[in-house]
Write a protein that binds this DNA or RNA. Structure first.
Length: 608
RNA sequence: GGAGCCGUAGUUAAGCUGGUUAUAACGCCGGCCUGUCACGCCGGAGGCCGCGAGUUCGAGUCUCGUCGGCUCCGCCA
C-alpha cells in the first residue's frame, strides 16, 4: 500500500502539519502576472506536480482557479528548501513568497501565470495526502467505478470541475433571466403525496402516521398550479425531482428541473419566454447565438420526417414513405406492410457487409425483424431485395427517394411505430457514421401538437401522453369519445441536438374540463376525488388560464458541457443500480428505526 | 424483467490454439541532480489475475454460477 511507503519515508520528520497561524491567502493560483512582480504574496492550494532537482525544487500549486509555479531555492531560504523535499502530490500547502520574473526562455505559455513564479520565503504544510488512486489530471483515464468511489478526487480534475463552473453559470443565467421577467422563486414540498400515473415514486414512511407514506415529487406540477390559483402569476424553481425508474447515460433517479408556470398566457407566450431563456443561457455561457425564433415542427411532421419525437435537425437524411410505391410489389413483406419507409444515405454505398450487419443488429433492438437495403451502383441495384421490384416500382423509388449512384437506401416495413423508431435511430447512427453532424452546432427546435393520449398496451387503456392536467386543443375534447388517439394537446417540447431538454403545456383550468379528462382516462369520479380532489376544488375558486414548462437542467448542462454522460454534470451521481459508490447508499437501517416507522421487512427467502 | 461489453500490480492496459518465474507504461519508495514545468538519470518494491465451483496432469486463459461497473431494450405521465 502507498501508506506503507510513506511511513518508511526518509522525510517523515518534515511532515508536521501546521494550522493557518494567521496566514491569509492573498491571490488565487491563476491570478499573478508580470504586473505583480515584486509583490509579497500568499498562495494556498494543492501540489499538482513536484520537480525536485536536489538544488532547486519546483512545485505547481493548484487551486480551483489554476496553477502557479512555486520555487524553493536554498539561496533564498535554506530551511524552507530543506523541508520541501518532503512535499508530495496533493499535499496541501500555504506558501509566502516573492513574485519574480522567470529567467529568459523559461516562460510557460500554457499557463496564465506562466511569466512569473513565486520564490518561497516561508511555507506551511496544511495537510498531507495519501498517494491518490488515480492521477489528478485530465490525461489520466481512471475507470468510472473508481472515479465514483473517490468522487472528491475526481472532482479535482480540471475537465470535470469545469463542468460545475459551467453548470453554475447556467443556473445563474436562469435566475437572472426569470427574475428580470418577474418570476417568483417559490419552494414546494419534497415530502408530498404519491400520484399514480407516471413514473414510480420514491416513498418515505411517516412515523407520525404509521402505515402512511409520503412520496418524493416527480415534479412540482400540482403545487405550481396551486400557485397560479394563488395568484402568483409567474413562478419558477430550480428543483430536485425524483423518479424511481431504471437509469441511463442521460437519466438519474434524482435530477434537477428548471420548473416554471405562468398565468394568462397561451402557448406562444410560454414558448417565447422559454426560448428567450435558452438563448440567454447560450449567450452568457458559451457566447453563442441561437435562432430567434426557434424552428417549430409538429409531432406528426417529426415522426413523418425523422421517425422520432426529438429530431436531431443538425443533419438531413429525412425518411420518405414508400408504402404506395411498393404496395403491389412481389416482395410480400413490403406488399402487406401497413407502412413502408425508406431512408437514402448519400455515399452510403461504401458501407461494408459487416457494417450493414451491425446496423441490422441496431434496428433489431427497436423491434425490427431485419434491415432491407439497396446499394445504388452505376449499372445495377445491389441488394437482396431489388429482384422483387418491377422497373416501374424501381423508378418510383428512385424518384421518391431521389436516389443517385453511390447511395445506400435502408427500408423498414411493418408496424408504424417500429418502422419509425428503428429508422429514426438508424438515421442518428448514420448521421454520425457519415460525418454529417457538425459537433459545434446547436440546433434547437420546438415540437408541438402532440397527441393528448396514447394507448397503454399493457394496461389496455388510454393514458395521458404528457400528464392528465394538459388541456386539449380547441374542439379536440369531443374526439376523446370517438377517436381518443387523434385528439391533440396544447403541449410543446424543446429539443436540442436530438435530446428532449424541456416540455410543457397549457393546463386545464376549469373543474369541468379536468373532470372530463379524468373520465376520458378511465379514472372514476370517486378515484379522481380521492387522488386529485384538492386540484378540482382549487380550480373552482377562480383559477386563471395558465401553462408552463420544465427544463432538465442536467441534460441542458450535459449538452453545453459536451459531456457524454449526465453523471459528468452531477457532483455525486448514482450508478446504474442506483447506488452511491461513495457513501454506499442505500444501506440497511436499524430495527429500532423500522419499528418507529411501523415498517416491517419481508423475510429474506435466500440466506446470504 | 431482458440483451450486450468489461473486471489482470496503486492506475491504465498486454497476456495467442490452456503449459517454466504473469509483461509494459505511468504512479510509488530510495539515491543523484540549481531552471524544471507530464523534469531527467540510476536502483527498488509492488499480484487472491473480482469471487466461487467445475473441466484438465495443469486454468489469468475453457465452462457454469455469482458480485460489481458501463451501454441499450422494457420502463421513464
Amino acid at each position: 500500500m502507498a501508506e506503507a511507503y510513506q511511513d518508511d519515508s526518509a522525510y517523515d520528520k518534515y511532515r508536521t502539519i501546521d494550522d493557518l497561524g494567521g496566514w491569509v491567502r492573498t491571490h488565487g493560483c491563476n491570478e499573478l502576472t508580470a504586473a505583480d512582480l515584486g509583490k509579497e504574496v500568499c498562495l494556498m492550494g494543492w501540489v499538482q506536480f513536484r520537480r525536485d532537482h536536489g538544488g532547486l525544487i519546483f512545485i505547481d500549486l493548484r487551486d480551483r482557479k489554476g496553477l502557479t509555479q512555486v520555487v524553493y531555492s536554498p539561496e533564498h531560504n535554506a530551511q524552507a528548501h530543506e523541508r520541501a523535499h518532503a512535499i508530495r502530490s496533493e499535499y496541501v500547502v500555504a506558501v509566502k513568497g516573492l513574485v519574480r520574473e522567470r529567467p529568459d526562455g523559461m516562460i510557460n505559455a500554457n499557463l496564465t501565470t506562466g511569466e512569473i513564479e513565486v520564490v518561497v520565503d516561508d511555507w506551511k504544510l496544511l495537510n498531507t495526502s495519501q498517494t491518490t488512486p488515480f492521477g489528478i489530471e485530465d490525461r489520466v483515464e481512471a475507470s468510472e467505478q473508481l472515479r465514483l468511489k473517490y468522487r472528491y478526487l475526481d472532482l479535482r480534475r480540471p475537465s470535470l470541475a469545469r463542468n460545475f463552473v459551467l453548470r453554475n453559470r447556467i443556473a445563474q443565467s436562469v435566475r437572472r433571466y426569470l427574475d428580470e421577467q418577474e418570476f417568483l422563486e417559490v419552494e414546494t414540498p419534497v415530502l408530498t403525496k404519491s400520484t399514480p400515473e407516471g413514473a414510480r415514486d420514491f416513498l418515505v414512511p411517516s412515523r407520525v402516521n404509521p402505515g402512511n407514506f409520503y412520496a418524493l415529487p416527480q415534479s412540482p406540477q400540482l403545487f405550481k398550479q396551486m400557485l397560479m390559483v394563488a395568484g402568483f402569476e409567474r413562478y419558477y424553481q430550480v428543483v430536485k425531482c425524483f423518479r424511481d425508474e431504471d437509469l441511463r447515460a442521460d437519466r438519474q433517479p434524482e435530477f434537477t428541473q428548471v420548473d416554471m408556470e405562468m398565468s394568462f398566457v397561451d402557448e406562444a407566450q410560454v414558448m417565447g419566454l422559454a426560448e428567450g431563456m435558452v438563448r440567454k443561457i447560450f449567450k452568457e455561457t458559451l457566447d453563442r447565438e441561437l435562432p430567434d425564433p426557434f424552428p417549430r415542427m409538429t409531432f406528426a411532421e417529426a415522426i413523418r420526417d425523422y421517425g422520432l419525437d426529438k429530431p436531431d435537425i443538425r443533419f438531413g437524411l429525412k425518411l420518405k414513405e414508400c408504402t404506395d410505391i411498393v404496395g403491389g410489389s412481389d416482395f410480400r413483406l413490403f406488399a402487406t406492410a401497413e407502412l413502408v419507409k425508406g431512408m437514402r444515405v448519400p455515399g452510403g454505398g461504401e458501407l461494408s457487409r459487416k457494417e450493414i450487419d451491425d446496423l441490422t443488429e441496431l434496428v433489431k433492438i427497436y423491434g425490427a425483424k431485419g434491415l432491407a437495403w439497396i446499394k445504388i451502383k452505376e449499372d445495377e441495384w445491389q441488394s437482396p431485395i431489388a429482384k422483387f421490384f418491377s422497373d416501374e416500382e424501381k423508378q418510383g423509388l428512385k424518384e421518391r427517394l431521389e436516389l443517385e449512384v453511390g447511395d445506400i437506401v435502408f427500408f423498414q416495413a411493418g408496424n408504424p411505430e417500429v418502422v419509425n423508431t428503428a429508422l429514426g435511430y438508424l438515421r442518428v447512427r448514420m448521421g454520425e457514421r457519415m460525418g454529417l453532424i457538425d459537433k459545434e452546432a446547436f440546433a434547437p427546435l420546438w415540437v408541438t401538437d402532440f397527441p393528448l393520449l396514447e394507448y397503454d398496451v399493457e394496461d389496455k387503456r388510454w393514458v395521458a401522453r404528457h400528464h392528465p392536467f394538459t388541456s386539449a386543443q380547441p374542439g379536440q375534447m369531443e374526439l376523446l369519445e370517438s377517436d381518443p388517439g387523434a385528439a391533440l394537446a396544447r403541449a410543446y417540447d424543446m429539443v436540442l441536438n436530438g435530446s428532449e431538454i424541456g416540455g410543457g403545456s397549457i393546463r386545464i383550468h376549469t373543474p369541468e374540463q379536468q373532470r372530463a379528462m379524468f373520465k376520458a382516462l378511465g379514472i372514476s369520479a370517486e378515484e379522481a376525488e380521492a387522488k386529485f380532489g384538492f386540484l378540482i376544488e382549487a380550480l373552482q375558486y377562480g383559477a386563471p388560464p395558465h401553462g408552463g414548462i420544465a427544463f432538465g437542467l442536467d441534460r441542458l448542462a450535459m449538452i453545453l458541457c459536451g459531456a457524454r454522460s449526465i453523471r459528468d454534470v452531477i457532483a455525486f451521481p448514482k450508478t446504474q443500480k442506483a447506488t452511491c459508490m461513495l457513501t454506499e447508499a442505500p444501506g440497511a437501517v436499524e430495527n429500532k428505526q423500522l419499528r418507529e416507522l411501523g415498517v416491517k421487512l419481508r423475510e429474506k427467502k435466500k440466506q446470504d
